[in-house]
């Protein structure tokens, strides 16, 4: 009896093995071995920040491409691109490291709420319904679609200010939060030397008085910063200033000139003279918070 069982089971196993072998030979997909190699060095986060469907998609695109110009893994950055270039025997495109920046500083204190949202806690849904809980219909809604979109745990809501804050150590500039934000509050900006950056932390396009009424920290489009700037990096359009990070030389004069503290500086050493910096206690507070968060 046992013998029959052993033989029949063995036979079934053998037939199965043969079939599997035949199938794997017949349907074998011949893949460029370099794709696997490239994929090996990629971070494997499948964040889609490169614009391809996952790391596998990016790897095969790299192998097929004739040059690596415009191909960038935002997570791995230059080191990974260098490795890929050496695998493929190509020149790596150099890329400036970027970081996500939240362009809203309408804290709970500065931007009083005038109604209470009672729908699904989702920025996408709230923004299709109406302007938001405050008088400012441009700023951060604070329901955290970007937090949910981030694969790297790099963006969080500060319960005190009600705003999202980026953890620059963790941020890989994949851009998922930028896509997730229905208000276009988040922008990818140049990380800057020693992570030093200056940016306008507001996108309110309302006229100055209206913007100011809705939010004490709003950019009112007064243009003082643009006059102060020696490098023509600042443009004021639709009542809101914007600093072109390719032109900005980080002199920080605009920060001091801003009457509402809407221009933020990050990771600079404390100023020596106290005179111009006497402005913005609010801005300074936000900065220190961001810095403590970076631990």
């Amino acid at each position: 009896m046992i013998l029959i069982a052993v033989i029949s089971l063995g036979a079934i196993g053998a037939i199965g093995a043969v079939l599997l072998y035949a199938a794997s030979k017949k349907f074998e997909v011949i893949e460029d071995p370099r794709i696997a190699q490239v994929q090996e060095v990629l971070p494997g986060a499948n964040c889609g920040g490169c614009g391809y469907p996952g790391c596998g998609g990016f790897a095969s695109a790299c192998v097929k491409a004739s040059s690596l110009d415009g191909m960038l893994c935002p997570v791995g950055g230059s080191p990974v691109m260098g490795q890929i270039a050496s695998i493929l025997g190509m020149e790596a495109a150099s890329a400036e490291p970027m970081v996500a920046v939240v362009r809203c500083n309408g804290t709970c204190a500065a931007r009083p709420r005038n109604n209470q949202y009672d729908g699904v806690k989702s920025c996408a849904i709230a923004s299709t319904l109406y302007g938001g809980e405050t008088g400012c219909s441009f700023g951060c809604l604070g329901y955290g679609d970007c937090v949910a979109a981030c694969n790297f745990d790099a963006i969080h809501i500060n319960p005190e200010t009600g705003l999202v804050e980026v953890d620059e150590e963790k941020c890989t500039s994949c851009g998922a939060c930028v896509k997730a934000c229905p208000k276009n509050v988040i922008e990818l900006r140049k990380k800057g030397p020693k992570s030093r950056r200056v940016f306008v932390s507001c996108i309110n396009k309302d006229k100055g008085a209206i913007a100011r009424k809705a939010c004490a920290n709003a950019c009112i489009g007064c243009g003082k910063c643009a006059k102060e700037c020696a490098f023509e990096a600042i443009t004021v359009e639709n009542n809101v200033a914007y600093i072109d990070f390719t032109k900005c030389r980080l002199c920080r004069k605009c920060v001091a000139a801003c009457p509402t503290g809407a221009i933020h500086e990050l990771n600079f050493p404390p100023r020596k003279e106290a005179a111009p910096a006497a402005a913005k206690p609010e801005a300074a507070k936000v900065e220190t918070k961001e810095e403590t968060n970076q631990k």
Binding site: N115, Y130, G131, S137, D206, I210
Partner: peptide
């Protein structure tokens, strides 16, 4: 001028 509409946008 801009005025608040029913959805809170101006």
């Amino acid at each position: 001028d801009n005025a608040l509409d029913s959805s809170g946008y101006k």
